[in-house]
Design a protein around this nucleic acid. Sequence first.
RNA 1: GGCCCCAUCGUCUAGUGGCCUAGGACGCCGGCCUCUCACGCCGGAAACACGGGUUCGAGUCCCGUUGGGGUCACCA
Length: 469
Amino acid sequence: MAQTIITRFPPSPTGYLHLGGARTAIFNWLYARHNHGRFVLRIEDTDVQRSTDESVNAIFEAMEWLGIDWDEGPYFQSERFDIYKKYIDRLISSGNAYYCTCTPEEVDAMRNAAKERGDNPRYDGSCREKNLPWQEGAVVRFKTPLTGNTVVEDMIRGDIAFSNTELDDFIIARGDGSPMYNLAVVIDDITMNINTIIRGDDHISNTPKQILLYQALGAKVPDFGHVPMVLGPDKSRLSKRHGAMSVTAYRDMGYHPDAMVNFLVRLGWSHGDQEFFTRKELIDKFDLDHIGRSAGVFNPEKLLALNAEHIRNAPADSLAAHLLPFLQEKGIAVEAGAYLYGVIETLKPRSKTFVEMADGAAFYFVEKPEYDEKAAAKFLKPALLGPMKQLTDAVSGMAEFNEKNLEDIFKQVMEDSGLGFGKVAQPVRVALTGKTVSPGIFEMMLALGKEKVISRLCDAVAYIERVSE
RNA sequence: GGCCCCAUCGUCUAGUGGCCUAGGACGCCGGCCUCUCACGCCGGAAACACGGGUUCGAGUCCCGUUGGGGUCACCA
């Protein structure tokens, strides 16, 4: 029996959750779910200056919307300083780390000097062998091996070797005793039993430092998998100037979370030629073998197309919950139910987002549709008075309000008036919706219901009579 | 600049030495369907960065070049 896979997502709460971070979270979540493992959420807020509660909440909100649930946590690094302290002391007493009293200015000078010589800017190890005791403001540095290689056995990229001489004695604890990123992550991952780390490849160069820390602590090194980054449409790193990059912005623009997840996963991972995935399929099929190695460009058109496809393929009742907020925003107060589901059904193939769906749904819920001026002028003309009256009467007298009977009524009107189908349908469409564009005439009438159809038809007849005078 | 990573249509990608005359998807163009708008369907233009190897055979393996990206903090 293989070990239980335990993955984690460790955002730092310095802003909203953006697309790239969301994808990393999804990969870790999928990998855990696929392997019946566990997924841990940890908030990396050791940088008290930049971390905010607002960001923490934004992250929770985004994950909830995406449907990414966690089995453990959220843990907050800011609440774990005692633990880090213990490990830092251990590293010092075992000779793997030391206090350093060089000031930032001095270190800067070292770096500049090294640069001048054409060397790598780095700390020169001044305090390394001084065996300094603790003193106010001293930082703790890790004693990086002077020789040898550290190799990252990456599950996605294969082995990546780094010469230890490339690494300097990096700081693991600040002057105030708080832990630095590389230390905190390693301690957390060790104590939380994380054995699988999937993260962006911008972390590759941190990995050898972390491996060295694991080794110094005598801990088992986890499996690493570095996924390529997500680039903006201009192929540069994703940033705020790319516009809406926060996950929740897409929720607000009317995207379906399943489409977002599908899109993000497909950006960098593939399963043959398949493009559309349900959540369950993703969990069933996700693996690390088919994650690509090159960066992916975010393509909003494809996201939109995928969103339309998810809307088209989802059952109406599952779409209702997503649509309701957008309806409310338009001042339409409805509850989920048969009428709404019928409405959604007619709108599914013609809505790319929930915003569009709400727009298209509005006429179903108003008291009386407001006629588009041009539409009324073109189709609600005096010449149509007779046919419209006939149709209205026939519908009023319908025994059963179904598609077959509606078709028969239309046929009769067409026959008696000599008008083609379109000539009859467009005026009816305007009468019922106020617009020239709507779902198919019969499906729309059925969704609207007999009562509304009759009353709107009567209104239209009255309108035509009025303009005829 | 050092180190590291990457390289198939505009974009996301399939491809794990012969099945590739390089497939799919988005977008684009043309057509069909049709009560409007969509959906759907059919067709089209569009890529293996370059140069050397290895091999009977390379998009697939190796090296180099070029190009892109990441990273070098008392940020994460």
